[in-house]
C-alpha cells in the first residue's frame, strides 16, 4: 500500500457529473467521475457541453427558469439546490460548455467513495478528456490506493488516447485499466472527425497494452462517414497485435446530444452494426461487444 504522506488531498478537479451506479464503464459497478474539458472537437460528440471550460460570458443566466444561475464578481454561479436539470443553459451555451460544473477536492471524493464503497468494484474517470487534469487524477488514484477502506477499488481511465507517453507513465503505477477510443483508421479521417491525428492514440494503445493496462478499445462506427469499415482489414490486423483479453467494444453513432453537422448524418442502425461486427469477428477470430440499445 502507498504511503499517504505524499498525497495532496486538497488537489481539486473540475467535474461535470458523478454517477454512483454504472455497469458500462469497466468491470462491475463503478462510480464514474466525468471531468470537464476535452482537447478533441469531434463532429460526432455526444456530450459537446463537456468540451470547454465555462468562460463566464453569462449568456445562459437569463435562460434559467428556476434562478439557479446568477452572476457574482463577473463569474457565473450555479446553485445545484435550485437546479431542475432542464439543461436550457447547455442548449444556449455558445462555447460548447456548461455552467454546471463543480470543483471537488481529492478529500471530498474520498468521502463520497467511502460512503459507496460496499456497492463498488471500482472507479472510472471519464469526460470530457479526464487526462487533461492529469495531476488531479494522479493524486486521486494515489489516495484511493493508500486508503485501507478503499484500496480494493480498481481505478480505470476512459480516455481519447491523446495523453503523452510521459503522462501515461505518471498514471501507470496507480491505475488498473483503461478504455481507449479509436475513432478512425486513417490519420486524415481522424483529423477531419476530431481535429487531431490518431498517431498518438495508437501509441497510447500500444503503450497501455505493453503494460497490461489496456482493458478495452472502443470503435465508434459512423456508416458512410468514417473509414473503420473500408479499412477493416488493416484495422483488424492492428487489433490482432493486441492481447487477446482486450475487449473490443463497438459504439453505434446515434443522435443523442449531438449538435451541428453531426445531426445531418445518418444514425447507425442495428442492422449496419451487426454487419460491421460480423466482418470484425471473422477477421479477429473472437467476439466483440455490441451496443444494447439503438434509438
Amino acid at each position: 500500500m502507498l504511503q499517504s504522506d505524499t498525497i495532496n488531498f486538497d488537489k481539486k478537479g473540475i467535474i461535470s457529473k458523478i454517477l454512483t451506479f454504472s455497469c458500462v464503464d469497466g468491470p462491475g459497478n463503478r462510480l464514474v467521475i466525468f471531468l470537464q474539458g476535452c482537447n478533441f472537437d469531434c463532429i460526432s460528440c455526444h456530450n459537446p457541453h463537456t468540451i470547454n471550460h465555462c468562460d463566464h460570458c453569462a449568456d445562459c443566466v437569463a435562460s434559467c427558469p428556476t434562478g439557479a444561475l446568477t452572476v457574482e464578481n463577473n463569474k457565473v454561479k450555479w446553485r445545484q439546490a435550485l437546479c431542475s436539470g432542464c439543461d436550457k443553459c447547455i442548449d444556449i451555451c455558445p462555447s460548447k460548455s456548461t455552467p454546471k460544473t463543480s470543483s471537488y477536492s481529492v478529500r471530498q471524493l474520498l468521502e463520497l467513495l467511502t460512503q459507496h464503497r460496499h456497492f463498488l468494484n471500482g472507479i472510472t474517470v471519464s469526460g470530457g478528456e479526464s487526462t487533461l487534469q492529469l495531476a488531479f487524477l494522479v493524486e486521486l488514484f494515489k489516495a484511493v490506493k493508500a486508503n485501507a477502506a478503499l484500496s480494493h477499488l480498481s481505478c480505470y481511465v476512459d480516455s481519447n488516447g491523446s495523453l503523452s507517453e510521459q503522462g501515461w507513465n505518471k498514471l501507470l503505477p496507480y491505475i488498473d485499466g483503461t478504455m481507449i477510443d479509436l475513432k478512425a483508421w486513417q490519420n486524415a479521417t481522424h483529423l477531419w472527425l476530431v481535429g487531431r491525428g490518431n498517431h498518438r492514440v495508437m501509441q497510447t494503445i500500444n503503450q497501455l497494452a505493453a503494460h497490461n493496462k489496456l482493458y478495452e478499445v472502443r470503435l465508434l462506427y459512423i456508416p458512410g462517414k468514417t473509414d473503420l469499415l473500408s479499412e477493416i482489414d488493416a484495422l483488424c490486423e492492428y487489433l490482432n497485435t493486441l492481447p487477446q483479453q482486450v475487449i473490443i467494444r463497438l459504439n453505434a453513432f446515434q443522435h443523442h446530444g449531438v449538435i451541428g453537422e453531426g445531426l445531418t448524418w445518418d444514425k447507425c442502425s442495428e442492422q449496419q452494426m451487426l454487419m460491421f461486427s460480423k466482418k470484425l469477428v471473422a477477421r479477429l477470430g473472437r467476439e466483440v461487444l455490441l451496443p444494447s440499445v439503438y434509438t
Binding site: 447547455i90 459504439n251 446515434q254
Partner: peptide, 9 residues
C-alpha cells in the same frame, strides 16, 4: 450509452 453522458433533456 457506453462512455457517453446522455442528457435527460
Amino acid at each position: 450509452v457506453t462512455g457517453y453522458m446522455v442528457k435527460l433533456s
